[in-house]
Design a protein around this nucleic acid. Sequence first.
DNA 1: ATGCATCGCGCG
DNA 2: AAAGCGCGCGATGCAT
Length: 606
Amino acid sequence: MQLMTLDIESFYSKTYSLSKLTTEEYINGDEFEVIGVSIKLGDAPTTWHTGSRLQITNILNRYNWNDITLVAHNCFFDASILSLYFGIFPARYMDTLSMARAVHGISVGGSLAKLAEHYELGVKGTEVVDAMGKYRKDFTKEELARYGEYCINDTELTYKLLQKLTPHFNSTELSLIDMTIRMGADAKLEVDMLLLQAHLDYVLDEKERLLSTVAADKSELMSNPKFAKLLEDHGVEVPMKVSPTTGENTYAFAKTDDGFKALLEHSNPTVQALALARLGVKSTLEETRTIRFMNIANRMGSLPIPLKYYGAATGRWAAGSGQKVNFQNLPRGSILKEAIVAPQGQVIVGADLSNIELRVGMWVAGEMSALKLLGEGGDLYKDFASKVFDVPYDEVTKDQRFIGKTSQLSLIFGVGAAKLRAAVKAGSGKDLPNAQEIVDLYRSTYTGVTGLWSKCGDAIKAMALNSNFTFGNNDIFAVEGTKGIKFPSGMYMQYPELAHEVNKETGERGYKYKLRNGYDRLYGGKLTNNLVQGTARCIMSEAMVRVNKRYPIVLTIHDALYILAPEDEAQEALDFLIEEMTKTPLWMAGLPLDAEGKYGKSLAEC
DNA sequence: ATGCATCGCGCG
DNA sequence: AAAGCGCGCGATGCAT
């Protein structure tokens, strides 16, 4: 396989740029033009190529792309141009932006300029500033040559950056980057346009209908102050709450706020109608997402899935930022999921890892009896419910099991009584006055979990003091001072600027670390959550690499994986998917895994 | 006009 | 403080 580092320069203007448009909109748009491309094969000198679309196509077609690993900075962009504009699909993708994000988190910045500075690779040029609003024909010969020098320099910097970053990655992680870029740049899924059109009509009609039931216009329902005024006019006391962010008094208008829910059951039917209309009119997800899907499919016929490798600090994937469509939060039961379909002759096969965070958490905490029960196919939700309600395991009712489930999924991360009570109320409508007793019972039952919190507290201290320390079942986590905590993947959970702090006003002590915007606190329960999430991600990602050898992965949603398979091979593919997803990693011996899956024509069917 | 903070909400 | 956590997008309201 040949390594090709590449950088493509394309037309942009103040309004036509990647900061205004999604990558797909930009490349498929009417103003798109490739001005030139620089190419570096292996460690040979970089060459610059400019010319018409046909001329550049001819140059690119000289290469045997089946034998090329493509490297670029923000490879999603260059790879998308190659696929959408030139119909070229390299054998493998590498991306220095993805790599840098995983290695440096938020602390260096993702731009080539920042990274080049950090690694002292050289200076990124500024010629591109003069290219604003200029098509190829608008450049003089000298300007084009200078642009070429700039482009060559970027490619050289990218190649040097690759050398710096590669040592941080094992082959699994490199494969994950390849898969992630492929999901975005090599679109395989399609949409059911008729279904989307019908859905859009329905959503718009429904909004009209809701508006017609009230004597108010859209803006009065959408705006908080205007909606408050509307309520006052009807003699309703406006529900208020204290903002957890600012500590200020604010409107309790969220659909889960008790004050708002009371409006839906208000004695005055007009008030009920206003609250209901606000809910319906405020929700824009279905409408905007349907329109976007239709526009994308109209432009390109298929549906790319842009995701961000190592988007979360825990290593989980995130939605491709700036791509405007988040495929990781499509509403359950939405037509949107029905409208995402496999191409002719194929099916989507999907599976998800059953209560993976609970299993991983219990394993890390060394809760052997819980693991034993899980391994025998037992139900930990029922098990805890039987302790809470002091009833035999087999006599646990559905309602009791729900409380057991809510407890198991949250208390492991340090959730307190108030939030447990709220979660049970939200999920079942039932009040849980004895929530504190349940929390206490949990903490005295699972002493491995409370022990893990304590160890996590030690780990935080070790990071802040820049010392080394291993902990967790089988010493799975290695604290390496300020570098962070090493996952089994070899990647790190990082807490930039982690420091102990005493609040001058309240006297509270604790640790805090830097986020993208502002700071957050770090404590045992929270670190437990981060590590469990990151470890679950490691398990899933090892499965992804194995699965991808046989079937293309089209989407991952944390604990769920979706692949494409030939129609007549659907069941075989599902069996294979589940078999691979439930293989216990070598580094987590004794962890019982389980997965459930389905296949069908659309995402909704699996 | 444009950017930023906040809130709300969708998923896991 | 034995404190659930991780994301991104859209809309609003306010500041520039």
